[in-house]
Design a protein around this nucleic acid. Structure first.
Length: 472
DNA sequence: TCTGGGGTCCTAGGACCC
DNA sequence: TCTGGGGTCCTAGGACCC
């Protein structure tokens, strides 16, 4: 921009431009349709067109996903599988999940989305938000619809026939509402200015954060639709639901949703739990279960080179009442033996004489350093160390997962790769580097994702960094 | 055959320190 | 003797989401 003085007209034009940009429909929500069941139908043609239910098959199992054919009979996610069996006709396929297959197809779809824009927030295995503005996409209504259709077509191609639904609007909430409106395989654009026309006639459950409890309380006040909710004073909502929830309800009912698309979401807790086939009374057996759950949690801490300071156990009785007990250690640990010892101590504070139907072990207060609270003097020398730490097996070497030396992968960075040739970094985050390799002149090349800790990518022009040798 | 498993965020109360 | 606050950390539970 030149340094000639801006005129008032320039300023007005600029601010008009800015305000319209802020309101542009630029957030895309993608939801894979009946994802687990669809993968099963894709991989086993005999299941196509038939009701398929994926979930726990034991006596206490619940449905993860029902195919659209099964939904016609009333099968739903979170329904006890036994109930789904009662509702669905003979010939319905009941399957346990093949979660590795789902994860792989999910990864392919997420890579595809990252080729649209580097700003992708994966919410779950079958759901993601994309910030289209960050991808330099044509944000006109025609451009957005074309993009949405293209994404659906590409997903069919790269996944071998899976379908997804897309919503595009001005906020996360409206984009998500959009993706629900024309399932399956639908593209819904809710343009700037249309939000309230769509939102207000909907039941309050459409608002993000309104579940059964909140909807029930609102019903008590005669509030059924979002329009009803939008008429309630902020002060009243705050007095009923508390500061955070009340304010959120007030904003969202007016379609004010400023949540941004977050690429890197760092885990705050890790847990594992198990519902037993039959309730467990025997404390020795429960302690064995603690050990198994702890091993699962500690293994996941290990793969992310993370350590935890707070240990939580969860217990559930036959009548479904559930309690948690937690305790914080003087120092973060990744040691299964230390976690299990604390978990057993916590378990011994709950009454298991009538038996437990569920036991869980979780950790939180995560850090990337095991010895989080050593007291150092001015020279960095340890001057104080807790006895428990020095006595325990804690001070194992810190595992290095990401190379401590460059490259710090960044968007647009050129890379070489031994198999697929030269390319450049599309996105880095969630422990992976996504690379778009160079294709023919008129067509972008393939997109691949590499785990950060295993990547063999090499910067095209490494300044003062050598190819990493394998670490122990 | 009643109700999975993995998370996030918020609130409230008590302890403790200044 | 009586009476304060603010701030932080910790624990337990609830609501919600996929």
């Amino acid at each position: 921009m030149s340094d000639t003085a801006l005129t008032l007209a320039d300023l007005l034009c600029h601010s008009d431009h800015m305000s319209s940009r802020v309101q542009d429909a630029s957030i895309l929500h993608l939801d894979l349709d009946a994802f687990f069941a669809a993968v099963e139908q894709r991989d086993k043609p005999s299941l196509r067109g038939k009701p398929v239910v994926v979930g726990g098959l034991g006596g206490r199992g619940v449905v993860s996903t029902a195919s659209y054919e099964a939904r016609r009979y009333g099968a739903r996610s979170a329904m006890p599988t036994a109930e789904a069996r009662r509702r669905c006709p003979p010939g319905t396929a009941f399957l346990t999940g093949r979660y590795e297959a789902y994860r792989i197809s999910s990864g392919v779809v997420m890579d595809l989305l990252r080729s649209v824009s580097p700003t992708v927030e994966q919410v779950s295995v079958d759901e993601a938000y994309v910030d289209l503005a960050a991808g330099g996409v044509d944000l006109s209504p025609v451009g957005l619809r074309t993009l949405g259709e293209q994404v659906l077509a590409d997903i069919r191609t790269v996944t071998g026939g899976l379908t997804a639904s897309v919503g595009i609007s001005t906020s996360k909430m409206m984009a998500k509402i959009g993706s629900e409106m024309n399932k399956p395989a639908g593209v819904t654009l809710i343009a700037a200015g249309e939000e309230l026309d769509v939102l207000h006639p909907m039941p309050v459950r459409a608002v993000a954060g309104v579940g059964p409890a909140t909807a029930g309380r609102l019903r008590g006040f005669g509030v059924e639709t979002v329009a009803d909710l939008a008429r309630i004073e902020l002060a009243d909502l705050v007095s009923i639901f508390g500061t955070a929830h009340g304010q959120a309800l007030h904003d969202l009912a007016a379609a004010r949703d400023t949540r941004t698309v977050q690429v890197d979401r760092i885990a705050k807790s890790v847990s594992a739990e198990e519902t037993f086939k039959t309730d467990i009374t025997d404390r020795a057996v429960l302690h064995t279960e603690i050990d198994g759950l702890t091993r699962r949690v500690a293994a996941r801490l290990g793969t992310s080179a993370t350590f935890a300071r707070t240990i939580t156990i969860k217990a559930r009785w036959h009548d479904f009442t559930t309690v948690t007990r937690s305790g914080s250690l003087p120092h973060a640990t990744g040691e299964p033996a230390v976690i299990a010892r604390e978990a057993r101590r916590l378990l011994d504070t709950v009454d298991a004489t009538s038996g437990l139907r569920l036991l869980g072990v979780g950790v939180s207060g995560l850090t990337t350093h095991a010895q989080d609270e050593l007291v150092l003097d001015g020279d960095g020398v340890v001057v104080e160390m807790d006895d428990e730490l020095s006595a325990s097996a804690d001070p194992q070497p810190v595992r290095e997962v990401t190379p401590s030396t460059p490259p710090q992968w960044r968007t647009g960075q050129d890379v070489r790769h031994t198999e697929a040739g030269p390319g450049w970094v599309w996105g880095a985050g969630r422990g992976v580097v996504t690379v778009r390799f160079e294709g023919p002149l008129t067509r972008p090349g393939p997109i691949r994702s590499y785990p950060l800790d295993e990547t063999q990518l090499v910067p095209a022009d490494p300044p003062d960094w050598r190819e990493p040798s394998l670490r122990p």
